[in-house]
Design a protein around this nucleic acid. Sequence first.
DNA 1: AGAGCTATATATAAGTG
DNA 2: TCACTTATATATAGCTC
Lengths: 208, 208
Amino acid sequence: MGRRKIEMKMVTDRSCRQVTFSKRRTGLFKKANELATLCAVQIAIIVFSPGGKPFSFGNPGVEPVVGRFLNRGDEHHDGQSEPSGSATGRSERLVEELNGIQRRIQLEKKRGEALEKALARAKASAAAAGGGSDSLISRSVEEMGMEELVEMRRRLVDLREQLDGRAVEMEASSTLLLLSNKSESAGDSRGGSWGGGRRRRSVAKWRD
Amino acid sequence: MGRRKIEMKMVTDRSCRQVTFSKRRTGLFKKANELATLCAVQIAIIVFSPGGKPFSFGNPGVEPVVGRFLNRGDEHHDGQSEPSGSATGRSERLVEELNGIQRRIQLEKKRGEALEKALARAKASAAAAGGGSDSLISRSVEEMGMEELVEMRRRLVDLREQLDGRAVEMEASSTLLLLSNKSESAGDSRGGSWGGGRRRRSVAKWRD
DNA sequence: AGAGCTATATATAAGTG
DNA sequence: TCACTTATATATAGCTC
Protein backbone atom coordinates (compact mmCIF):
# COMPACT_ATOMS: atom_id res chain seq x y z
CA MET A 1 0.00 0.00 0.00
CA GLY A 2 2.90 2.29 -0.31
CA ARG A 3 5.44 3.27 -2.83
CA ARG A 4 6.68 -0.24 -2.75
CA LYS A 5 5.40 -3.61 -1.83
CA ILE A 6 6.95 -4.97 1.33
CA GLU A 7 7.51 -8.54 2.36
CA MET A 8 5.33 -9.91 5.10
CA LYS A 9 8.29 -10.47 7.32
CA MET A 10 9.19 -8.75 10.53
CA VAL A 11 10.72 -5.37 9.85
CA THR A 12 14.26 -5.71 11.09
CA ASP A 13 15.09 -2.08 11.63
CA ARG A 14 13.77 -0.99 14.99
CA SER A 15 13.06 2.52 13.87
CA CYS A 16 11.20 1.49 10.75
CA ARG A 17 9.32 -1.10 12.74
CA GLN A 18 8.15 1.49 15.21
CA VAL A 19 6.99 3.76 12.41
CA THR A 20 5.22 0.93 10.68
CA PHE A 21 3.60 -0.06 13.93
CA SER A 22 2.30 3.41 14.60
CA LYS A 23 0.90 3.88 11.15
CA ARG A 24 -0.70 0.50 10.95
CA ARG A 25 -2.07 0.66 14.45
CA THR A 26 -3.76 3.90 13.53
CA GLY A 27 -5.14 2.35 10.40
CA LEU A 28 -6.32 -0.72 12.24
CA PHE A 29 -8.18 1.27 14.84
CA LYS A 30 -9.71 3.35 12.13
CA LYS A 31 -10.95 0.22 10.41
CA ALA A 32 -12.30 -1.08 13.67
CA ASN A 33 -14.13 2.14 14.23
CA GLU A 34 -15.65 1.97 10.78
CA LEU A 35 -16.73 -1.59 11.36
CA ALA A 36 -18.33 -0.62 14.64
CA THR A 37 -20.07 2.33 13.05
CA LEU A 38 -21.28 0.65 9.90
CA CYS A 39 -22.47 -2.51 11.56
CA ALA A 40 -23.28 -1.26 15.04
CA VAL A 41 -21.30 -3.98 16.72
CA GLN A 42 -19.19 -4.31 19.82
CA ILE A 43 -15.50 -4.61 19.24
CA ALA A 44 -12.31 -4.46 21.24
CA ILE A 45 -8.69 -4.40 20.18
CA ILE A 46 -5.72 -4.72 22.44
CA VAL A 47 -2.21 -4.42 21.09
CA PHE A 48 1.19 -4.05 22.65
CA SER A 49 3.73 -1.94 20.83
CA PRO A 50 7.21 -3.28 20.10
CA GLY A 51 8.25 -1.41 23.19
CA GLY A 52 5.62 -3.14 25.27
CA LYS A 53 3.26 -0.24 25.66
CA PRO A 54 -0.42 -1.18 25.55
CA PHE A 55 -2.85 0.42 23.14
CA SER A 56 -6.51 -0.31 22.96
CA PHE A 57 -9.67 0.44 21.08
CA GLY A 58 -13.14 -0.47 22.15
CA ASN A 59 -16.73 0.10 21.25
CA PRO A 60 -18.36 0.85 23.56
CA GLY A 61 -15.18 0.14 25.48
CA VAL A 62 -12.60 -2.52 25.94
CA GLU A 63 -13.79 -3.85 29.23
CA PRO A 64 -17.45 -4.36 28.28
CA VAL A 65 -16.49 -6.32 25.19
CA VAL A 66 -13.83 -8.38 26.89
CA GLY A 67 -16.19 -8.98 29.75
CA ARG A 68 -18.89 -10.18 27.47
CA PHE A 69 -16.44 -12.41 25.69
CA LEU A 70 -15.30 -13.85 28.96
CA ASN A 71 -18.92 -14.36 29.86
CA ARG A 72 -19.25 -12.05 32.72
CA GLY A 73 -22.56 -10.68 31.72
CA ASP A 74 -23.08 -7.29 30.19
CA GLU A 75 -25.47 -8.50 27.61
CA HIS A 76 -27.02 -5.11 27.15
CA HIS A 77 -27.55 -5.74 23.54
CA ASP A 78 -30.42 -6.58 21.31
CA GLY A 79 -29.11 -9.88 20.19
CA GLN A 80 -29.13 -13.16 21.95
CA SER A 81 -27.92 -13.21 25.44
CA GLU A 82 -26.53 -15.97 27.47
CA PRO A 83 -29.11 -17.72 29.52
CA SER A 84 -28.17 -16.58 32.95
CA GLY A 85 -26.73 -19.30 35.00
CA SER A 86 -25.42 -21.05 31.98
CA ALA A 87 -22.33 -22.99 32.72
CA THR A 88 -21.24 -23.33 29.14
CA GLY A 89 -19.81 -19.88 28.86
CA ARG A 90 -16.19 -20.78 29.13
CA SER A 91 -16.57 -23.71 26.86
CA GLU A 92 -18.07 -21.56 24.22
CA ARG A 93 -15.34 -19.05 24.59
CA LEU A 94 -12.75 -21.69 24.12
CA VAL A 95 -14.62 -22.93 21.11
CA GLU A 96 -14.55 -19.45 19.66
CA GLU A 97 -10.84 -19.25 20.27
CA LEU A 98 -10.47 -22.47 18.39
CA ASN A 99 -12.69 -21.16 15.66
CA GLY A 100 -10.46 -18.14 15.48
CA ILE A 101 -7.45 -20.35 15.06
CA GLN A 102 -9.29 -22.27 12.41
CA ARG A 103 -10.03 -19.08 10.57
CA ARG A 104 -6.37 -18.18 10.63
CA ILE A 105 -5.60 -21.53 9.16
CA GLN A 106 -8.14 -20.90 6.46
CA LEU A 107 -6.59 -17.53 5.75
CA GLU A 108 -3.17 -19.04 5.36
CA LYS A 109 -4.63 -21.73 3.19
CA LYS A 110 -6.23 -19.22 0.92
CA ARG A 111 -3.03 -17.30 0.66
CA GLY A 112 -1.15 -20.43 -0.22
CA GLU A 113 -3.62 -21.32 -2.91
CA ALA A 114 -3.47 -17.87 -4.40
CA LEU A 115 0.29 -18.08 -4.47
CA GLU A 116 0.21 -21.45 -6.10
CA LYS A 117 -2.09 -20.17 -8.78
CA ALA A 118 0.11 -17.17 -9.35
CA LEU A 119 3.11 -19.43 -9.53
CA ALA A 120 1.41 -21.60 -12.09
CA ARG A 121 0.51 -18.59 -14.17
CA ALA A 122 4.03 -17.29 -13.97
CA LYS A 123 5.40 -20.57 -15.19
CA ALA A 124 2.88 -20.73 -17.99
CA SER A 125 3.69 -17.20 -18.94
CA ALA A 126 7.36 -17.92 -18.93
CA ALA A 127 6.76 -20.95 -21.08
CA ALA A 128 4.83 -18.95 -23.62
CA ALA A 129 7.45 -16.24 -23.75
CA GLY A 130 10.24 -18.72 -24.01
CA GLY A 131 9.13 -19.93 -27.39
CA GLY A 132 10.35 -23.37 -28.14
CA SER A 133 13.00 -23.50 -25.50
CA ASP A 134 12.25 -24.48 -21.99
CA SER A 135 15.52 -23.27 -20.66
CA LEU A 136 13.96 -20.32 -18.99
CA ILE A 137 11.41 -22.40 -17.21
CA SER A 138 13.99 -24.89 -16.26
CA ARG A 139 16.15 -22.26 -14.80
CA SER A 140 13.28 -20.82 -12.84
CA VAL A 141 12.21 -24.11 -11.48
CA GLU A 142 15.74 -25.01 -10.69
CA GLU A 143 16.30 -21.85 -8.76
CA MET A 144 13.03 -22.31 -7.01
CA GLY A 145 14.02 -25.73 -5.95
CA MET A 146 17.27 -24.48 -4.57
CA GLU A 147 15.54 -21.62 -2.93
CA GLU A 148 13.10 -23.95 -1.32
CA LEU A 149 15.84 -25.97 0.22
CA VAL A 150 17.41 -22.92 1.74
CA GLU A 151 14.06 -21.65 2.86
CA MET A 152 13.15 -24.92 4.43
CA ARG A 153 16.25 -24.90 6.52
CA ARG A 154 15.71 -21.36 7.65
CA ARG A 155 12.11 -22.19 8.33
CA LEU A 156 13.03 -24.86 10.80
CA VAL A 157 15.40 -22.60 12.65
CA ASP A 158 12.94 -19.73 12.80
CA LEU A 159 10.22 -22.04 13.86
CA ARG A 160 12.06 -23.26 16.88
CA GLU A 161 12.87 -19.72 17.89
CA GLN A 162 9.29 -18.65 17.61
CA LEU A 163 8.02 -21.60 19.52
CA ASP A 164 10.23 -20.99 22.48
CA GLY A 165 8.38 -18.66 24.73
CA ARG A 166 5.21 -18.90 22.80
CA ALA A 167 4.53 -22.38 23.91
CA VAL A 168 5.01 -21.24 27.44
CA GLU A 169 2.52 -18.49 26.99
CA MET A 170 0.00 -20.78 25.45
CA GLU A 171 0.44 -23.29 28.15
CA ALA A 172 -0.07 -20.80 30.91
CA SER A 173 -3.19 -19.29 29.48
CA SER A 174 -4.70 -22.53 28.38
CA THR A 175 -4.04 -24.09 31.70
CA LEU A 176 -5.69 -21.24 33.47
CA LEU A 177 -8.60 -21.57 31.18
CA LEU A 178 -9.03 -25.22 31.95
CA LEU A 179 -8.40 -24.97 35.62
CA SER A 180 -10.88 -22.20 36.09
CA ASN A 181 -13.39 -24.14 34.10
CA LYS A 182 -13.01 -27.10 36.35
CA SER A 183 -14.63 -25.47 39.29
CA GLU A 184 -17.90 -25.09 37.51
CA SER A 185 -20.62 -27.58 37.00
CA ALA A 186 -21.05 -28.14 33.36
CA GLY A 187 -24.48 -29.56 33.57
CA ASP A 188 -25.45 -28.93 30.04
CA SER A 189 -28.22 -31.04 28.76
CA ARG A 190 -27.61 -30.65 25.08
CA GLY A 191 -24.70 -32.92 25.22
CA GLY A 192 -26.64 -36.09 25.68
CA SER A 193 -25.52 -37.66 22.50
CA TRP A 194 -21.95 -36.65 22.70
CA GLY A 195 -20.57 -40.01 23.44
CA GLY A 196 -21.91 -41.40 20.25
CA GLY A 197 -19.43 -39.61 18.15
CA ARG A 198 -21.51 -36.97 16.54
CA ARG A 199 -19.32 -35.24 14.12
CA ARG A 200 -19.14 -31.61 13.22
CA ARG A 201 -20.98 -28.58 14.42
CA SER A 202 -22.80 -29.30 17.52
CA VAL A 203 -22.50 -26.22 19.58
CA ALA A 204 -23.74 -23.73 17.08
CA LYS A 205 -25.60 -21.34 19.22
CA TRP A 206 -25.31 -18.15 17.28
CA ARG A 207 -26.93 -17.44 14.02
CA ASP A 208 -24.12 -16.14 11.89
CA MET B 1 -13.13 1.41 -0.98
CA GLY B 2 -15.57 -0.01 -3.39
CA ARG B 3 -17.43 1.00 -6.46
CA ARG B 4 -18.98 3.76 -4.48
CA LYS B 5 -18.17 5.67 -1.41
CA ILE B 6 -20.46 4.88 1.45
CA GLU B 7 -21.51 7.03 4.32
CA MET B 8 -20.17 6.21 7.72
CA LYS B 9 -23.57 5.44 9.06
CA MET B 10 -25.00 2.19 10.20
CA VAL B 11 -26.04 0.11 7.23
CA THR B 12 -29.78 -0.13 7.56
CA ASP B 13 -30.42 -3.25 5.55
CA ARG B 14 -29.80 -6.26 7.73
CA SER B 15 -28.57 -8.39 4.89
CA CYS B 16 -26.15 -5.81 3.56
CA ARG B 17 -24.98 -5.13 7.07
CA GLN B 18 -24.16 -8.76 7.56
CA VAL B 19 -22.25 -8.89 4.31
CA THR B 20 -20.36 -5.73 5.13
CA PHE B 21 -19.57 -7.11 8.54
CA SER B 22 -18.18 -10.33 7.16
CA LYS B 23 -16.01 -8.64 4.58
CA ARG B 24 -14.68 -6.00 6.89
CA ARG B 25 -14.10 -8.41 9.71
CA THR B 26 -12.00 -10.48 7.37
CA GLY B 27 -10.09 -7.43 6.29
CA LEU B 28 -9.59 -6.29 9.85
CA PHE B 29 -8.22 -9.64 10.96
CA LYS B 30 -5.95 -9.66 7.97
CA LYS B 31 -4.61 -6.27 8.90
CA ALA B 32 -4.13 -7.40 12.45
CA ASN B 33 -2.23 -10.42 11.24
CA GLU B 34 0.01 -8.23 9.13
CA LEU B 35 0.65 -5.90 12.01
CA ALA B 36 1.55 -8.80 14.22
CA THR B 37 3.84 -10.22 11.57
CA LEU B 38 5.57 -7.04 10.52
CA CYS B 39 6.09 -5.71 13.99
CA ALA B 40 6.21 -8.92 16.00
CA VAL B 41 3.71 -7.68 18.53
CA GLN B 42 0.95 -9.20 20.60
CA ILE B 43 -2.55 -8.30 19.54
CA ALA B 44 -6.08 -9.42 20.25
CA ILE B 45 -9.37 -8.53 18.66
CA ILE B 46 -12.79 -9.46 19.90
CA VAL B 47 -15.87 -8.57 17.92
CA PHE B 48 -19.50 -9.55 18.12
CA SER B 49 -21.41 -9.87 14.89
CA PRO B 50 -24.73 -8.13 14.38
CA GLY B 51 -26.26 -11.45 15.32
CA GLY B 52 -24.34 -11.56 18.55
CA LYS B 53 -21.86 -14.23 17.60
CA PRO B 54 -18.35 -13.69 18.89
CA PHE B 55 -15.33 -13.65 16.62
CA SER B 56 -11.79 -13.25 17.74
CA PHE B 57 -8.27 -12.93 16.54
CA GLY B 58 -5.19 -13.18 18.67
CA ASN B 59 -1.46 -13.36 18.39
CA PRO B 60 -0.29 -15.48 20.01
CA GLY B 61 -3.86 -15.90 21.21
CA VAL B 62 -6.67 -13.87 22.69
CA GLU B 63 -6.28 -15.08 26.22
CA PRO B 64 -2.58 -14.25 26.60
CA VAL B 65 -3.02 -10.73 25.32
CA VAL B 66 -6.16 -10.00 27.28
CA GLY B 67 -4.57 -11.43 30.36
CA ARG B 68 -1.53 -9.29 29.98
CA PHE B 69 -3.67 -6.27 29.39
CA LEU B 70 -5.87 -6.85 32.39
CA ASN B 71 -3.04 -7.65 34.71
CA ARG B 72 -0.49 -5.10 33.78
CA GLY B 73 -2.39 -2.65 31.65
CA ASP B 74 -1.16 0.87 32.06
CA GLU B 75 -4.34 2.32 30.72
CA HIS B 76 -7.09 0.08 31.96
CA HIS B 77 -7.37 -2.67 34.43
CA ASP B 78 -10.03 -4.04 36.63
CA GLY B 79 -7.84 -5.78 39.07
CA GLN B 80 -8.61 -9.18 37.72
CA SER B 81 -6.06 -11.68 38.76
CA GLU B 82 -5.96 -15.30 37.88
CA PRO B 83 -4.87 -18.00 40.21
CA SER B 84 -1.98 -20.00 38.96
CA GLY B 85 -1.66 -23.68 39.11
CA SER B 86 -0.15 -26.66 37.45
CA ALA B 87 -1.51 -28.43 34.49
CA THR B 88 -3.42 -31.60 34.75
CA GLY B 89 -2.98 -34.46 32.36
CA ARG B 90 -6.01 -33.55 30.42
CA SER B 91 -5.19 -29.91 30.14
CA GLU B 92 -1.69 -30.75 29.16
CA ARG B 93 -3.00 -32.64 26.25
CA LEU B 94 -5.27 -29.83 25.19
CA VAL B 95 -2.43 -27.42 25.57
CA GLU B 96 -0.30 -29.57 23.40
CA GLU B 97 -3.02 -29.67 20.81
CA LEU B 98 -3.28 -25.94 20.85
CA ASN B 99 0.44 -25.56 20.59
CA GLY B 100 0.43 -27.95 17.72
CA ILE B 101 -2.13 -25.99 15.85
CA GLN B 102 -0.20 -22.84 16.49
CA ARG B 103 2.91 -24.44 15.13
CA ARG B 104 1.05 -25.45 12.03
CA ILE B 105 -0.19 -21.97 11.53
CA GLN B 106 3.38 -20.80 11.64
CA LEU B 107 4.33 -23.42 9.13
CA GLU B 108 1.58 -22.36 6.80
CA LYS B 109 2.72 -18.81 7.10
CA LYS B 110 6.26 -19.78 6.33
CA ARG B 111 5.10 -21.77 3.41
CA GLY B 112 3.33 -18.78 2.00
CA GLU B 113 6.43 -16.70 2.35
CA ALA B 114 8.55 -19.29 0.67
CA LEU B 115 6.19 -19.61 -2.24
CA GLU B 116 6.02 -15.90 -2.52
CA LYS B 117 9.76 -15.69 -2.80
CA ALA B 118 9.82 -18.45 -5.33
CA LEU B 119 7.21 -16.65 -7.33
CA ALA B 120 9.17 -13.43 -7.28
CA ARG B 121 12.20 -15.30 -8.43
CA ALA B 122 10.34 -16.98 -11.21
CA LYS B 123 8.99 -13.71 -12.43
CA ALA B 124 12.34 -11.99 -12.22
CA SER B 125 14.02 -14.83 -13.97
CA ALA B 126 11.44 -14.85 -16.70
CA ALA B 127 11.57 -11.13 -17.09
CA ALA B 128 15.32 -11.04 -17.24
CA ALA B 129 15.01 -13.42 -20.15
CA GLY B 130 17.94 -13.84 -22.42
CA GLY B 131 19.65 -16.15 -20.01
CA GLY B 132 21.29 -18.94 -21.89
CA SER B 133 21.13 -22.31 -20.32
CA ASP B 134 22.87 -25.53 -21.00
CA SER B 135 20.59 -28.44 -21.10
CA LEU B 136 23.23 -30.92 -20.11
CA ILE B 137 24.19 -29.84 -16.65
CA SER B 138 21.11 -27.98 -15.62
CA ARG B 139 19.00 -30.83 -16.84
CA SER B 140 19.80 -32.97 -13.86
CA VAL B 141 19.58 -30.13 -11.45
CA GLU B 142 16.39 -29.13 -13.06
CA GLU B 143 14.88 -32.50 -12.54
CA MET B 144 15.98 -32.52 -8.97
CA GLY B 145 14.48 -29.14 -8.42
CA MET B 146 11.32 -30.21 -10.08
CA GLU B 147 11.05 -33.30 -8.00
CA GLU B 148 11.76 -31.28 -4.96
CA LEU B 149 8.98 -28.90 -5.79
CA VAL B 150 6.48 -31.57 -6.59
CA GLU B 151 7.30 -33.48 -3.46
CA MET B 152 7.15 -30.44 -1.30
CA ARG B 153 3.88 -29.36 -2.73
CA ARG B 154 2.41 -32.75 -2.13
CA ARG B 155 3.43 -32.62 1.48
CA LEU B 156 2.12 -29.14 1.89
CA VAL B 157 -1.19 -30.07 0.40
CA ASP B 158 -1.40 -32.97 2.78
CA LEU B 159 -0.61 -30.72 5.67
CA ARG B 160 -3.34 -28.35 4.67
CA GLU B 161 -5.85 -31.11 4.54
CA GLN B 162 -4.77 -32.29 7.92
CA LEU B 163 -5.02 -28.85 9.37
CA ASP B 164 -8.54 -28.40 8.17
CA GLY B 165 -9.70 -31.65 9.62
CA ARG B 166 -7.71 -31.13 12.72
CA ALA B 167 -9.18 -27.78 13.51
CA VAL B 168 -12.69 -29.07 13.20
CA GLU B 169 -11.79 -32.04 15.29
CA MET B 170 -10.34 -29.81 17.92
CA GLU B 171 -13.46 -27.80 18.11
CA ALA B 172 -15.73 -30.73 18.68
CA SER B 173 -13.38 -32.59 20.93
CA SER B 174 -12.60 -29.63 23.10
CA THR B 175 -16.21 -28.91 23.55
CA LEU B 176 -16.86 -32.49 24.45
CA LEU B 177 -14.04 -32.43 26.90
CA LEU B 178 -15.25 -29.35 28.62
CA LEU B 179 -18.90 -30.24 28.66
CA SER B 180 -18.24 -33.61 30.13
CA ASN B 181 -15.77 -32.12 32.46
CA LYS B 182 -17.33 -33.37 35.59
CA SER B 183 -18.24 -36.82 34.42
CA GLU B 184 -14.63 -37.36 33.81
CA SER B 185 -12.61 -40.40 33.15
CA ALA B 186 -9.97 -38.84 31.09
CA GLY B 187 -8.02 -41.89 30.23
CA ASP B 188 -7.02 -40.99 26.79
CA SER B 189 -3.72 -41.39 25.42
CA ARG B 190 -1.55 -40.01 22.93
CA GLY B 191 -2.26 -42.03 19.99
CA GLY B 192 -5.89 -42.47 19.68
CA SER B 193 -8.46 -40.20 18.38
CA TRP B 194 -10.69 -38.57 20.86
CA GLY B 195 -13.70 -39.92 22.50
CA GLY B 196 -16.05 -40.17 19.70
CA GLY B 197 -15.62 -38.49 16.50
CA ARG B 198 -12.63 -39.16 14.55
CA ARG B 199 -12.14 -38.38 10.98
CA ARG B 200 -10.85 -40.58 8.35
CA ARG B 201 -7.48 -38.99 8.40
CA SER B 202 -5.41 -39.98 11.32
CA VAL B 203 -3.25 -37.13 12.24
CA ALA B 204 0.33 -38.09 12.42
CA LYS B 205 2.10 -36.20 15.12
CA TRP B 206 4.44 -33.79 13.50
CA ARG B 207 7.32 -35.11 11.69
CA ASP B 208 7.82 -35.45 8.08
C1' DA C 1 -24.59 -18.11 1.86
C1' DG C 2 -20.12 -17.76 -0.35
C1' DA C 3 -16.83 -17.16 -4.12
C1' DG C 4 -15.20 -14.25 -7.79
C1' DC C 5 -15.11 -9.81 -10.31
C1' DT C 6 -13.98 -4.90 -11.26
C1' DA C 7 -14.00 0.02 -10.44
C1' DT C 8 -12.99 2.96 -6.79
C1' DA C 9 -11.86 4.35 -2.27
C1' DT C 10 -8.33 3.93 1.25
C1' DA C 11 -4.15 2.76 3.46
C1' DT C 12 0.47 3.30 3.57
C1' DA C 13 5.98 2.94 2.25
C1' DA C 14 9.04 6.22 1.07
C1' DG C 15 10.27 10.63 0.51
C1' DT C 16 10.47 15.54 2.18
C1' DG C 17 10.69 19.51 5.41
C1' DT D 1 10.66 11.87 15.80
C1' DC D 2 6.82 14.04 13.79
C1' DA D 3 3.72 16.11 10.05
C1' DC D 4 2.82 16.04 5.13
C1' DT D 5 3.00 14.46 0.43
C1' DT D 6 2.55 11.17 -3.18
C1' DA D 7 2.94 7.04 -5.87
C1' DT D 8 1.33 2.44 -5.27
C1' DA D 9 -0.60 -1.40 -3.03
C1' DT D 10 -4.82 -3.07 -0.84
C1' DA D 11 -9.41 -3.18 0.68
C1' DT D 12 -13.93 -3.42 -0.52
C1' DA D 13 -19.08 -1.90 -2.47
C1' DG D 14 -21.99 -3.53 -5.66
C1' DC D 15 -22.94 -7.40 -8.74
C1' DT D 16 -23.24 -11.85 -10.63
C1' DC D 17 -23.54 -16.80 -10.21
